[in-house]
Design a protein around this nucleic acid. Structure first.
Length: 164
DNA sequence: GCCAACGTTGGC
DNA sequence: GCCAACGTTGGC
């Protein structure tokens, strides 16, 4: 490859993620109404690290409804900001308040997410029924991570074959 | 409401 | 550094 064809340092192939949200707090309809949402409330280091260190603007997001009568993928979104401190960690009245986190050294970082489309719900049992998705991180036994990576093959399969 | 699985905390 | 106790997640 010639040097002139080398892309700018910051660019890389688009990556893909699955992000869980409790629809009581923020559903795909909430995102559709507001256009964008700050992904507040993540208080797990691994999930935080994905937002802080790995996500890039433009990455694809499977928007997943969790802790609800019908868990599953409810639509598509896109990462639309670089990481910044989750403001709720400093709000005393917030459920997500973290007294140990100081503004000069914020513990919890988030990104904003932009609405792309709503889809017919792809339920958890349906996801589990597809051999092509057998290795999805979110489907692993005991998985509780609210943000998980999705492979390009999984993304392609879900968005082109399961989404309506 | 139950409970399996996992992360975090804190005593030692 | 170990590990028991505790808290949380999230499907059912």
């Amino acid at each position: 490859m010639s040097r002139s064809a080398t892309p700018a340092a910051e660019t890389r192939a688009r990556q893909y993620w699955l992000m869980k949200s409790e629809p009581d707090e923020a559903s795909i309809d909430t995102l559709a109404e507001r256009g964008t949402l700050p992904w507040t409330g993540v208080r797990n280091y691994q999930a935080r690290n994905f937002m802080r260190d790995a996500m890039r603007v433009g990455d694809g997001v499977l928007f997943y409804h969790s802790s609800c009568p019908e868990p599953g993928i409810a639509g598509l979104a896109e990462v639309c900001s670089t990481p910044y401190p989750d403001p709720t960690q400093f709000e005393r009245a917030s459920h997500y308040y973290d007294a140990a986190s100081k503004p000069e050294a914020p513990r919890w970082m988030l990104v904003d997410v932009r609405f792309v489309q709503k889809s017919a719900l792809i339920s958890l049992p349906e996801l589990r029924a597809h051999e092509a998705l057998a290795d999805m991180v979110v489907l692993r036994r005991g998985n509780r991570l609210s943000i998980t990576p999705v492979t390009p093959a999984e993304w392609r399969y879900i968005t082109t074959r399961l989404m309506r």
